[in-house]
Design a protein around this nucleic acid. Structure first.
Lengths: 121, 121
DNA sequence: CATGATACATACTTTAGGGTAAGTACTTGT
DNA sequence: ACAAGTACTTACCCTAAAGTATGTATCATG
């Protein structure tokens, strides 16, 4: 069932791919360039918005806030704002977000091995 | 050192980010939508070009071959062509590619848990 | 009264990734 | 002679993602 449409774009096939490939399911949530990087920085410790900004200098504010919102909507990070001024907003990993730490760690481990030429550099 | 340029794009900051964040390093190689999916299918068994095509119906031939080439250039997959006709080309994971299996598996595991509501669905 | 710090929002433009469609070369089958 | 299967290649187009550049609100400080 779940036939493929003739006019097939990534968007339209997402539902299909989701059923058949778990990795695709993950890519829907943390795919793209910045999200895993943000999650990595949150995995070491909760961080304020400005701390994340400083931790990832290459990211623009638009990208940062945009992805934080998406991660929040997807239930991976939790946003907590203290009603003070100047604002004090903290981002942390949710339960589901913590579940991704093994993925992030596996990535980091691979990166270090690759750099060290373990795989034949 | 390694100061950030004023005109900062992802491209220009890749070198910088690579030094500071291992996850970024991984994303350079397997970032994007299709690559992890391709690696996932190759992790279960070596496959011919046409087998991959059938395994990932949503992907176009252009994307498939393009990402396979990049993965080959990045030393993650190995292409073996038998000089017969019709062509017989097999793709398999390299040493470094096999090193990514824990990442892929961690992703798959998370996806199943998330679907099962383990994290509070 | 202007500046800085906080955490955003929003309009506009550019670019890169992805999609469509067609073609190539060689052989087997009808 | 023509279609089908193999593994691609190439040219063109379109859209979604990313970048640029502003603006907002509030208070503290000089």
């Amino acid at each position: 069932m779940t036939a493929i449409k003739e006019t097939s774009t990534i968007q339209e096939n997402k539902q299909y791919a989701l059923d058949i490939c778990p990795v695709t399911y993950v890519m829907e949530k943390i795919g793209g360039y910045w999200k895993p990087i943000i999650l990595y920085h949150l995995s070491t410790s909760d961080k304020r918005y400005s701390e994340l900004k400083r931790a990832i200098p290459a990211i623009t504010e638009k990208m940062l806030i945009q992805h934080l919102k998406q991660l929040e909507n997807d239930g991976l990070v939790i946003r907590e704002a203290k009603p003070v001024v100047p604002p004090f907003v903290t981002y942390s990993l949710s339960n589901a977000g913590n579940g991704l730490i093994p993925v992030i760690n596996a990535m980091a481990e691979w990166a270090f091995k690759e750099k060290d030429g373990v795989y034949g550099g």
